[in-house]
Amino acid sequence: RSPLSLFFASSDTHIQYARMGTDVTMQCGAMDWDASVTWTANGTDIDESHLNGSQLVLRNVDLTHSGQYFCYEGSSWHLKYQTTLKVGTPPKEPMLMCRSNNYPRGFYCSWHLPSPTYIPNAFNITVMHDSKEMVCEKDTPPKNRCHIRYLQLFSTKRYKVTLTVTNALGRSSYTITFDEFAIVKPDPPENVVAKPVPNNPRRLEVTWQNPSSWPDPDSFPLKFFLRYRPLIIDQWQHVSELRLPPPSGGGDGERSLCCTDRIRWAALDHRTGMDVVQSELWTSEPRSHIPTHQCTTTTSTSSFAAPPTTKICDQNVADG
């Protein structure tokens, strides 16, 4: 395949693509080789050193060579040829990722190219499961993402997703296969709020809610992982395996933590865990002034009732 590919963008002008670093030769329409001509690029005359007879020769092209080229007959200034040159690269192997943040409703796949090609690319994605192709509803461009609905649940057959990217200079593709539950990754919890507990400077109350994108918390309950630290200490304190209160408790989570005084919380990192997988995102830093004495909390997680709290206080931390 020659590095120079021809595309006809519209009836009168056409577009030609050239691979970065290659040489480009343009013919002045039907003019003889030795005819007298003038070439312009984006309205500027091109120096005759670039001509080989009536042909235009561009060496080792780069992005600056992209533009509109015109060729005029020497004496009459009749336009004999015009084209738009687009310099670019063939697509590299695309990056493809699939994730289910609303299991068991479905999953989405998103993709991007590791480096720009500078010319238009076309993406084609196929999703196969149990030898059947599944519909992948594309988001509106420029979002490189599409959504697939689960038709079956609890399948041992793997999903196979192939993404092919094509442009005028080449094509590349990438395939991933995965089990249904391997891509489950819930969004972080929502409305996370940290408040001091009145009349108890050594306690902090943290509340949160299930991610709204999680469709069926009753059948697919989430586990939450919370960590906190006083700013003066680098060590995170972990409170994990938190479940929301018993079934009748609705979607709100609440944890009362023992904490130090005059802490300025660095950040609260909330990870929403499901039996197998976790998703992680930092949240914005809640502001509150809490004492600096270090406390650790251990909690037993009975997956049914709200976990009881056992508080172990250690006074050896110097005041902040």
């Binding site: 649940l153 609890f154 399948s155 041992t156 539950f181 009753d218 059948s219 697919f220 309950p221 018993p246 079934p247 009748s248 039996d275 197998v276 049914f304």
Partner: peptide
């Protein structure tokens, strides 16, 4: 593995429908 994964979800639904 998949059956146990499914069963856990099945019993979650049952827990909601048969509260303590």
């Amino acid at each position: 593995q998949i059956w146990l994964w499914r069963s856990a979800k099945d019993f979650n639904r049952l827990r909601k429908r048969v509260p303590p």
